[in-house]
Simulated assay, not measured.
Amino acid sequence: MTEHRASEGLRQWRDKAGLNPDKIGYALRLNDARGTAATRLLRAGLPLAQIAACMGWSIRTAALMIERYAKVSPGETDEVLAALAAAK
């Protein structure tokens, strides 16, 4: 499966489900799966280093991606950034 075909399949599913940008306020994209994965790993209690390894990211990138993509509370974000600072 090509990247284009995967993205097109997601777009078709999104449209059939009625999750278009006008309804939910943003366009769901294949790359949004990163946010879902990071959120699930974080909520499962995995430490930052394991999340980085699972996602193929550096620890710094993992912290930045979690902050950007993961739906976390401010307290959780603070914990991730504190872990990053402690890892330096």
Rank of each mutant, 00 (worst) to 15 (best):
A53S: 15
M55V: 01
A17W: 03
L84D: 00
A52F: 00
E67T: 10
P47H: 07
I51N: 00
R60Y: 14
T61W: 07
G75E: 06
P74H: 07
R40I: 08
R68I: 03
A6R: 15
P74Q: 09
G35W: 00
T77C: 14
Q12W: 10
G18Q: 05
E79K: 11
E76A: 06
E76N: 03
A52C: 06
S7N: 15
G18L: 02
K23T: 15
D78T: 06
Y69A: 00
E8I: 09
S7Y: 08
R68A: 12
A44Q: 15
A62Q: 03
T61D: 15
R40H: 09
R34V: 04
A17M: 11
A87Q: 11
A6G: 05
R60H: 13
R29I: 11
T77M: 08
W57S: 02
A53I: 03
L48N: 01
L28W: 04
P21I: 01
A6P: 00
A83N: 14
L42A: 12
Y69W: 14
R14Y: 13
H4M: 12
R43S: 12
R5Y: 09
P21V: 04
D32F: 05
E79A: 14
Y69C: 00
R43M: 08
E67V: 04
A17P: 01
A85C: 03
L19R: 05
H4N: 13
L28G: 02
R40V: 14
D15T: 14
R60W: 11
G35Q: 03
N31H: 13
R43T: 07
D32A: 03
A17H: 05
T36F: 13
S58I: 04
N20G: 15
S58A: 10
D32Y: 02
M1Y: 12
D22W: 07
R14G: 03
D32W: 03
K23I: 15
G9T: 09
M65Q: 12
A62P: 01
C54F: 11
S73N: 07
L19S: 10
T61F: 07
T61S: 13
V72R: 02
A37N: 05
A6W: 08
E67K: 09
N31T: 11
K71R: 10
E67G: 10
A6V: 08
R14A: 04
Y69S: 02
G56W: 04
E67F: 05
L42F: 11
A6Y: 08
S58Q: 06
A17V: 06
N31G: 08
G35H: 03
D15S: 13
D78Y: 02
A38D: 01
T77N: 09
